[in-house]
Design a protein around this nucleic acid. Structure first.
Length: 453
DNA sequence: TCTGGGGTCCTAGGACCC
DNA sequence: TCTGGGGTCCTAGGACCC
């Protein structure tokens, strides 16, 4: 099931009536299941003493507030605010502070998602605490069972089995389910489930939603919209196509169609590998020593490379970035970065670290202090297709040793696991190097060893 | 040497999401 | 003193080719 509209960036339709939609664009029954205050709820599952108490969950270095329980939301605290600004309120009101524990949250998330998959097979896990479900064609609902009741059953099951409270919004498009779940969370009457599918109250619901709370509208776009008199989701839904296209681009137009019940974002139920992998961290203090920076970057590269190998990818491109932190006048951070096109795609830590160190040396300025740094791998390719240039043709001794290794590994892994050959036929200008294409990442280390000798 | 236009690829930066 | 750590997609502009 693909996106029904050819709403490409270069295509500006005159209006929805000019396009014919396949039935699934208009008639889907979707749900968003959203865990309430997820991190705070997880902390409560493992420490029931926290039930009923106001809680905030803090980021690494305990620098920022990244989640709040309902009780904590009563105070003047918002997600994303730095702790030092709110410390007084927190201490005065005996709000409990928890340092974040992402292993725990990931584990709880898996439990919730497993339960959901048991109810509905067509599911997209959208984030650590959210999943979209597609009820269209769901066998359990064929016998006229009420979809709202079914959603309540799901909700109760999750709560009973995991201890995590969730809200469920039902609607025709993803954007509308987001709104439904938001309202379900707020309304006491809804009991955690709100169904806006073909609802006569849909427009009333949209009117209650401020534009900045619409999925896909950030602070920048919201400001522009408000300037034009568009304050709520209903006004956004009724705005003219050309106006939206002009102020918010193609994504804005997709979003408005979704508000009108025309699905532009289909369910993505087959998780694709990441297109880029990054690892970065704030130091929590100023770092000026290049040795210390190198040590940190080495750790980041090792972490990111592991994730790279886990999804069976290799990177062709590497970027190291270092930020100086906020300047005295609270203006922007200075972001310095160096990108390196790798000679061949790789997911080998040793090679990636070597390249990253070169980048650090390029960026580093004596006397400059850095507050944050990171590394990013881009242009990822499946590692089965990865080719590494292993040796020069002239080095016949190394060649024969390598061929022996390849044969041995093929014996171990099954023939064809690795192959070797020259690239010369395809790319005459590279005729000097020979290539080996490992199809199994487990071979990397052994190959690397041969290379090193 | 001058002139034009169309097309593609790459990159940096912006905006948004959780 | 103290401002998280991941991601995705789109766009504009420059370089380059024909």
């Amino acid at each position: 099931m693909r996106i029904p509209m050819k709403l490409k960036a270069d295509h500006l339709p005159g209006g929805p009536e000019e396009i014919s939609y396949p039935p699934e664009a208009l008639g889907q029954s979707l749900a968003l299941v959203d865990c309430n205050n997820f991190y705070a709820s997880c902390e409560r599952v493992f420490n029931p003493k926290l039930n009923g108490q106001p809680i905030v969950v803090l980021s690494s270095n305990d620098a920022c507030i990244i989640a709040l329980s309902n009780e904590a939301k009563e105070f003047d605290i918002k997600v994303g605010e730095p702790l030092f600004e709110k410390r007084q309120i927190i201490e005065k009101n005996n709000i409990v502070m928890c340092s974040s524990n992402f292993n725990l949250y990931g584990d709880m998330s898996r439990r919730v998602m497993d339960l959901l998959s048991g109810f509905i097979s067509d599911i997209e896990i959208y984030s650590i605490d959210e999943a979209f479900l597609n009820f269209s064609g769901c066998a359990n609902l064929d016998k006229g069972k009420d979809i709202t009741e079914y959603a309540r059953t799901i909700r109760q099951t999750i709560l009973k089995c995991t201890g995590i409270p969730v809200s469920i919004g039902l609607a025709r498009t993803k954007t509308l389910t987001k709104i439904a779940s938001k309202l379900a969370k707020k309304s006491k009457k809804a009991g955690g489930v709100l169904n806006l599918i073909d609802s006569p109250y849909l427009d009333k619901a949209l009117e209650k939603i401020h534009v900045v709370d619409v999925w896909g509208v950030g602070i920048k776009s919201a400001r522009k919209l408000i300037e034009k008199g568009i304050r709520n989701a209903l006004q956004l839904k009724e705005a003219s196509d050309s106006r939206i296209r002009h102020t918010m681009g193609i994504n804005g137009l997709r979003l408005v169609y979704e508000l009108r019940g025309i699905s532009c974002h289909s369910l993505d139920n087959c998780p694709r590998p990441k297109k880029g992998i990054l690892c970065s961290q704030s130091f929590g203090r100023k770092v000026t020593d290049i040795a210390e920076l190198k040590q940190a970057i080495t750790a980041f590269v090792a972490n990111a490379a592991e994730r790279l190998r886990k999804q069976k990818s290799a990177a062709r491109h590497l970027t190291v970035f270092m930020l100086t932190g906020f300047s005295e006048d609270k203006q922007v951070e200075k972001n310095q970065s160096v990108s390196i096109k790798l000679p061949t795609a790789t997911n080998l830590s040793s090679e990636l670290i070597r390249q990253a160190m070169k980048a650090v040396e390029k960026i580093y300025q004596n006397g400059q202090s850095y507050k944050r740094a990171g590394v990013r791998f881009d242009e990822l390719v499946p590692s089965e297709q990865t080719q590494i240039s292993l040796f020069e043709q002239s080095d016949s001794d190394k060649t024969s040793r390598l061929m022996e290794t390849v044969d041995r590994l093929n014996d171990k892994l099954g023939s064809g696991a690795l192959r070797y050959g020259t690239q010369g036929a395809m790319h005459p200008w590279k005729a000097k190097s020979e290539m080996v294409s490992p199809r199994y990442t487990t071979c990397w280390d052994e190959l690397a060893e041969v290379l090193a000798n």
